[in-house]
Amino acid sequence: MVAALVVFLAMLWLFQGLGEGNWRFVLALRATKLASLALVAASVGVATVLFQTVAQNRILTPAIMGFDALYLLIQSLAVTGLGTIGFASLPTGAKFLLEAMLLTGVSVALFGALLGRASAETIGRTILTGMILGVMFRSGAVLLGRLLDPNEYAIVQQASFANFSRPAGGTLGWAALLALPALAVSHWLGPQLDVLGLGRDRAISLGSAHRRMVIGVLALVAVLTAVSTALVGPVAFFGLIVAGLAHALLPGARHRALLAGAALLAMALLISGQWAFERVLGLRATLSVVIEFAGGLFFLVLLLRGRVR
């Protein structure tokens, strides 16, 4: 049903009010933005479900644990090290791939040990450590921002806030090149993620190569977070809402269904939100604020009705 809704929204997005003018140009522009939104939505939704499975916790998200802040910190460091011209003159693809690789390496090193041993007893410590790391990365990025000259800071600042209207430009192709295999691998790992979701002890007893799985899943989360952050900037609670809705609306805990559900729900929310934002509200509001506010309210309703576990 959600898939049908996404198809309907995609058609609405592409063809509503297309007009008689230069429709080829408009359609190409809309298609690019639609692909960008769909990629971001799938990346955020899947990354959050994956992360929550590894962390054994439904409250944690890559954003709360500071993955996107880490991405921004890496970008700030790159701008600081290379300067405005050096950073800007890097080929888009190479720059994006380098940033994604750095984020993957650093996040696996930082979170691998922490989340690899996550259990019911250590959830509190895991949350606290993650939030402290998140604050540290954000503070590091802010500190570097203060040290940069205004031109350099403008480059970093552009990436620091969620903006769904930002044209994808040359990044979209590279982002898709990374995200689509990551999404496919996530789907392929579905049954093994089901075992991982039982918790460390049970997963090992059932034959899961637990540590290898945790590191692999964290690498997927890092790649997907890099993709979404590079395309639209950090989205704080979107993943939490989408994963919460997927868990609440789907009957079981099978990851293939959860991952697809989270991706499709995220697409439906983002495309409908951006459509309303651009075509109904006439760009008089900010989608990130609207989505997170509306989604937050819906999440609260489900929480109060006891449907989010």
Binding site: S119, G197, L198, G199, D201, G207, H247, G252, A253, R309
Partner: peptide, 18 residues
């Protein structure tokens, strides 16, 4: 090893909804 031994520890907390 999972075909040689099964282990059940003391913890029965389950994050997954099963």
């Amino acid at each position: 090893l999972a075909r040689e031994m099964a282990f059940l520890g003391q913890q029965t907390y389950l994050a997954s909804r099963l």
